[in-house]
Amino acid sequence: MRLPLTAHTRRPWRLHEFAPDFRTEDVWAFRTPGAGPGELDVMLAAMRAAGGFARQSAANRFLFAVRRKLGAVLGWDRPEAGLGSRVRSLRDRLPRDLAATVDPAEPDGLPLTPVYRLQDEYVRELANGTVHTLMHLGWAPARDGGYELRMAVLVKPNGRFGRCYLRLIAPFRYLVVYPALTRQWEQAWRDRRLLLAGGAS
């Protein structure tokens, strides 16, 4: 479910301290009925056990394949356009104790690099020739009781071209990408006990 931007900007996330120059682009909620206040780790583990970003719908796989092809042809994803080259990592702004909450070099199969992780929020980042983007996963009180996962996407476009690119892909995010993530992640929550029991066996 798409939420107003204020659903992210008005909450006291630590991210606000370190990313004032990023614009909140999208905020999305994922229903997790029966969830309690300390269960972000459970949700993240269920998402990973369900396949995470690697297990996408056919439509999403097609869109991402097209994007990778365009990126290769047009040079958007060259190493010099990424983190540590065109832009500095957000991790460079963190205090040492917060940066130590994740290991950005640990492979986990996800396309975004970990920045930090707390009991109620988790941040990852990605940079290329079009944009420097942050994905913030927050655990927040749900409107109908309990708790829910909220995903906020924050962006710093790479000039006019980056701003045009974000406008161009917006319909695909709202009509294909986010609805597919919603189905996948909400199903992971519903199946969490079976998924996590399978992972432990």
Results as ranks from 00 to 15, higher is better:
R14T: 06
L15T: 03
L5W: 02
E186C: 02
R2E: 13
L134K: 08
F22C: 07
A140W: 05
F172E: 03
A65R: 14
H8N: 07
T113G: 07
Q187S: 14
R61W: 04
V73W: 11
H16Q: 15
A45S: 11
L98G: 05
R86K: 15
R150S: 00
F22W: 13
Q187L: 12
L112E: 15
L195G: 02
R167C: 03
E17Q: 11
R163F: 01
R10F: 03
G159C: 07
G51E: 13
L195S: 01
T182P: 00
A7I: 02
T6M: 00
P4L: 11
V123I: 09
G146N: 03
R124C: 05
R183S: 13
A7L: 01
L194R: 14
E39H: 02
F53T: 13
M135T: 10
G82E: 11
E106A: 15
M1T: 15
L181R: 12
A29P: 03
L175R: 15
T24W: 01
D144V: 01
Q184I: 10
G52Q: 06
E148C: 01
R67E: 08
E39P: 00
R117W: 08
G52L: 08
E125W: 07
F62G: 08
H16M: 12
H132A: 11
L15R: 06
W185C: 07
F172R: 01
Q184V: 09
D191E: 09
P141M: 11
L181C: 13
L5A: 06
L126T: 10
V123Y: 04
W185I: 10
L195T: 02
W139L: 02
D144G: 00
R61D: 04
P171Q: 14
R31Y: 00
A46V: 03
L112N: 13
D26L: 12
V73G: 07
V115K: 12
R91Y: 05
Q184H: 14
L70R: 15
R2H: 15
W139K: 00
L194A: 12
H16F: 11
L90P: 00
W13V: 00
A45V: 06
R78F: 05
